[in-house]
Design a protein around this nucleic acid. Structure first.
Lengths: 344, 344
DNA sequence: CTGAAAGCGCTTACAG
DNA sequence: CTGAAAGCGCTTACAG
């Protein structure tokens, strides 16, 4: 019955049927359908026409069995519900569609066991490449096993030479610098930088560049505060901060959700943004444009990250190369209404 | 070379190799790996052990060629970036993982041509079922072609008997009723209902049930306003509404984003929620908990919609039935801080 | 430019 | 309980 189903799927039309109807052997039929060379134009045209009329669609299993190709690529993200990854996924899918490929989506929950399970399943299904935001805890063993599969791997949000795998990420350093420049330009000299745990590499890069750019200007003061990088974390930290501002006129948060936490704490404390204090975030999540006031932030090219990852996959697949490629994508300042110009 | 790659993927280990190492034919090896019956426990154990040691993983193409099964299901949504569908996608993926299946994700952009292209591609890749939020404009022709594929189709956000396809959707009627009851319970008698275009079936269901439940109470007044069902639409409509409230004490919006539009207009007009006017939304999007004030709304089980869709797929696949199944999922009121009790 | 044939790696009646 | 064999529907050298 399953076999019968399979017939239904392809409309029951096999290459054999097409060949017969076109008066050739399956060999020429196959060649006509695939390469342009080595088959008489007239024959080719006839086969194509017949195939179309019969509504022929090749059996992927049969083809895959001999070519080894599946035309599918795997995408593993921690969670699509995270809008960052939803954007990335969309970028990957759009680029994949253009490249005639489908994408298999997996969620890892930042759980290395689940991630490994997904990888195995994707490899099992013959994914031709895997794009993923790897969790840190990928054992040496797993890493080798993955590399051994000989399938291109593209890591998301990882800067530079990660060894064996390709990477795509946003220019966090530039983002940090842009935030500093924005604040400086608006006259802020005494600012607070609220960020996540030091272990978070991307956040750390932003912080470092931010502090460096601020310090480049004389008479500047930056006070860095670490908290959990969530809305709650930002909220809690802001409550503390508001108790003793020490003359700070602006806050730069490592990401937007922390900024939203700051906003909430500000409302509750009767502090108005940007009148009493300016605020600038990082990421440019959807909500940033809808908050009140709309948040000035650094735009991360999430969608482009997805596209870029698939482009790397395509390059790797086409060239047959194994040497990893690396891309860092540009970010930019999006000025909305949460940063005020202050007079000195 | 492609063929060589294919070898790398499965570690180069074929059933043949396992069989040889276990001292049996590929027939028994296959049986050992698949069914439990008809093979001596000892033999079976030996084969399993060898397979494990050799790190054997069956070639999906070969298996698929004979069984017709791919263990993949397709999911088509208008756009994963829409958080509603991101949630749905997650639900589908989780349930699929449990069922040992992978999901291929496609975005249709509410474009029937793109949608049809995705369907064809999914069918081509032997998706065993397709879950999708169908765009209205699916031609009779396309519909038949899809049905002809003999693959279970589950439509999202479609109520009831849609003819040939299974459906899953939230209980919009109940949601509308809950909103009305909440308002009534809090003493509201004169309210405004702000919703989208009448053509939107789900919105219409909510409206109808809301109005009906409000009217059930004597001395009640509901004024319905139609606008585009976006933040902008809600914003614009609210500006109008605030000009002549005619004593209304609450607004029920057909979805949350319209409510956010109302919130913005309220802030600008100096109207405080819920002190000056109460507000209740529908959907319970992520932002609803983060807005100021946090929005009272009707929770839609987005994640569960995804899971339910996959459950239907499983049932249909296991039973081999073709008769469509329908599920409508429960919704519930989430009381936050945007509705005030009013004294009469 | 085209055909005959091997082979991709499995599953599954059919015998024993 | 196990083996020998057919067959799934393609692609691709190898001849001609």
């Amino acid at each position: 019955m399953s076999v019968k189903k399979s017939h239904l799927l392809s409309g029951g039309v096999t290459l054999q049927a097409v060949a017969r109807a076109a008066g050739v052997t399956i060999a020429t039929a196959s060649r006509s359908l695939n390469d342009a060379y080595g088959v008489h134009p007239a024959t080719r045209a006839r086969v194509l026409q017949v195939a179309k009329k019969l509504n022929y669609t090749p059996n992927r299993f049969a083809r895959g069995l001999v070519t080894g190709r599946s035309d599918m690529i795997g995408l593993i993200v921690s969670d699509v519900r995270n809008s960052y990854f939803a954007e990335v996924a969309r970028g990957v899918e759009d680029a994949a569609l253009e490249a005639g490929r489908d994408v298999m989506l997996c969620n890892s929950d930042m759980n290395s066991a689940r991630q490994m399970k997904s990888i195995v399943s994707l490899l099992d299904k013959r994914a031709e490449a895997i794009i993923m935001n790897s969790v840190a805890a990928l054992s040496r063993d797993d890493q080798q096993q993955i590399a051994a599969a000989g399938v291109p791997i593209v890591l998301l949000n990882r800067a530079g030479r990660d060894g064996t795998f390709s990477t795509v990420c946003a220019d966090n350093e530039k983002g940090g610098r842009l935030a500093a420049e924005c604040l400086l330009r608006n006259g802020h000299r005494n600012v607070i930088h609220l960020t996540g745990p030091k272990s978070h590499a991307n956040l750390a890069r932003r912080s470092q560049a931010f502090v460096k750019a601020m310090s480049a200007q004389r008479g500047t003061k930056v006070c860095t505060v670490h908290a959990i990088h969530t809305l709650q974390g930002g909220y809690g930290a802001a409550q503390e901060i508001f108790r003793s501002m020490n003359g700070a006129t602006a806050i730069f948060t490592g990401n937007d959700v922390m900024a939203f936490g700051v906003m909430r704490a500000a409302i509750e404390a009767g502090i108005r943004i940007p009148r009493d204090i300016s605020l600038i975030g990082f990421d440019d999540v959807e909500l940033a444009a809808m908050s009140f006031p709309p948040l000035t932030t650094i735009h991360q090219p999430k969608y482009s990250v997805g596209r870029a990852a698939l482009e790397i996959v395509k390059e790797l697949l086409e060239s047959g190369t194994e040497t990893p490629r690396h891309r860092v994508l540009d970010v930019q300042l999006v000025e909305r209404a949460s940063v005020a110009k202050i007079s000195r």
